[in-house]
Design a protein around this nucleic acid. Structure first.
Lengths: 134, 134
DNA sequence: CTTGCTCCTGTAGTTACTACAGGTAGTACG
DNA sequence: CGTACTACCTGTAGTAACTACAGGAGCAAG
């Protein structure tokens, strides 16, 4: 019941090149090879790759994913995982706050635009004068 | 009234290496050099670099900054600039929405944690099972 | 036996910098 | 005048997380 990399890619939705990249980076164990040198995957590989993919979808960096995998492999406690999750969530919240500030400033700037074909624009003025909201 | 790169860096808050990088990328014009080969900047250079810096602070990519600079140099209309600004703002809004979804999912996952020293965690379960909220 | 698909390795490109290494300009001090 | 010290110079490599080839081989079908 082994599958090749193309099938693994289809099942997980992870690009073939990315799978090989993850293997090179040590996020996935190197699978056995066929006589012709092709990677032969089984269910555990599918599960692990799905795990990595979901971590990535949640915005964890590969470095963080590596930490999570090591914990899963080596033994972990709920409080450890929760701490990592909460720290990551804090970073996300920070990014949201930063982006909201940008959104607000951009909105204020473009709101003053006439939107006409005049060679004069409050956005450009603000960018030159540095009168940006914070 | 010329200044050297160190002074330009201090006045704009842009790293020296970054200034040279911007020049190499064509975002800043190459300034005249002293007899010893050092870059000699004047006020227009300070203004342009400040412009680039503010664009970056608003989240514009260097590519977008290049477009803005070309417009400023070659003539622009308010409606052109407004369009670029609004498009950029839409991207920011999209990122905010994406991050909010992550934040929500992470919050829901960690809320189910016992936070104890047990080798069992709903976050890990969710990552393996793929029962993630969208 | 040749077509055609999947797979292999290895390298380069992407974004926006940052961090050196190794060398020169310019100034101040003794 | 020599030397120490700082600021500057170029050019290359490293960062994150992939993606995109180039050039070649395995494998099944006709």
């Amino acid at each position: 019941m082994t599958i090749q990399i193309g099938e693994l890619s289809k099942r997980t939705g992870v690009n073939i090149e990315t799978i090989r990249y993850y293997e090179k980076e040590g996020l996935l164990v190197s699978p056995p090879r066929s006589s012709g040198g092709r990677r032969q995957y089984e269910n555990p590989h599918v599960n692990r790759l799905s795990f990595v993919k979901r971590c990535r979808e949640l915005g964890f960096s590969l470095k963080e994913v590596r930490v999570l995998i090591d914990l899963v492999d080596g033994g972990y406690t709920c409080s450890q995982i929760q701490a990592i999750t909460l720290r990551h969530q804090q970073e996300i919240k920070q990014k949201i706050a930063d982006l909201k500030r940008l959104d607000k400033t951009l909105g204020e700037m473009s709101a003053r635009c006439s939107g006409t074909e005049q060679p004069d624009c409050p956005v450009i003025d603000a960018l030159f004068a540095g009168k940006m909201a914070n």
